[in-house]
């Protein structure tokens, strides 16, 4: 077990759940997830048009044009979530003067990454002691700063090819198609083999880690998954929600 400060606050001990995410973060994650799933379900049949299931699935959705419409609506939803997040972030930093330090990449992330790999392969006995966000959470977060602009920009080129070629050279259209197609595979594969794997199938987590939906994490899981932050909460004896916050 992780070392918990000896002066364990009685108030905190009674509390079964600790608030981890605020309502905006939960809404953003929900719509990001929803739009991602819809984009995958309507995009992959086009990428794998030869697959026997693809034509059947397009039929279920009502044909090529309805599938395209769903893809476009989901795309705008995802772009909307990005706008929401940008406003949330700027408002948090400049108006509410919240610290975003917990999400910034640090040298410690690389150390913890090394420790985790060492633990996985058996070179280290103890699991690394994570703070508020582990390296995977930060990687997922920053990957979107590359992935979503690539997908959104190339997607818009493919959505309005005639308009775009009035201002840009023609080659941007085939380039956008290649980028959109490959980057979608990258995002999907990463989400499945890392994000879904560690947040649904890791020991003790199955069927899922619900904190991003409920906003709360049980005291045991918090101690286990984010010991550094948990200790800090326990020591300062503050209210459950840490003041420094962002997604």
């Amino acid at each position: 077990m992780t070392t918990i400060s000896t002066a364990f606050p009685a108030e905190l001990a009674r509390r079964e759940y600790i608030t981890r995410f605020d309502i905006h973060q939960r809404i953003q994650h929900f719509f990001l997830m929803l739009s991602f799933v819809l984009l995958v379900l309507t995009g992959m049949p086009l990428k794998f048009a030869d697959g026997a299931i693809s034509a059947w699935w397009i039929g279920v959705l009502g044909g090529v044009e309805p599938t395209r419409s769903i893809h476009h609506v989901a795309a705008w939803t995802m772009i909307g979530v990005c706008g929401y997040h940008a406003i949330y972030l700027l408002y948090g930093i400049f108006i509410k003067k919240k610290s975003v330090a917990s999400m910034l990449p640090t040298r410690q992330d690389f150390v913890l990454f090394g420790q985790e790999i060492a633990w996985f392969v058996g070179l280290r006995k103890e699991k690394p002691r994570y703070d508020r966000y582990n390296w995977r959470e930060k990687f997922d977060y920053y990957a979107m700063f590359w992935g979503i602009p690539v997908m959104a920009l190339t997607g818009l080129v493919l959505m309005f090819p005639v308009l775009v070629t009035k201002f840009l050279p023609g080659w941007v259209v085939p380039v956008a198609l290649i980028a959109h197609s490959d980057e979608s595979m990258l995002a999907l594969t990463w989400i499945v083999i890392v994000h879904i794997y560690f947040n649904h199938f890791a020991p003790g987590v199955f069927p899922l880690n619900p904190s991003i939906f409920t906003g709360k994490l049980s005291r045991e899981r918090y101690m286990h998954d984010h010991p550094e932050e948990y200790d800090r909460i326990a020591e300062t004896q503050t209210a459950p929600a840490p003041k420094e916050d962002k997604s």
């Binding site: 790999i117 633990w119 996985f120 392969v121 058996g122 490959d182 980057e183 595979m185 990258l186 594969t189 990463w190 083999i193 890392v194 794997y197 560690f198 890791a202 020991p203």
Partner: peptide
Amino acid sequence: LLVSVVAFGALIMLVATRKY
């Protein structure tokens, strides 16, 4: 990019699975 990132993710998943 696709091959290298996916290979990285797969490797993490495999070593984690071994430990689990």
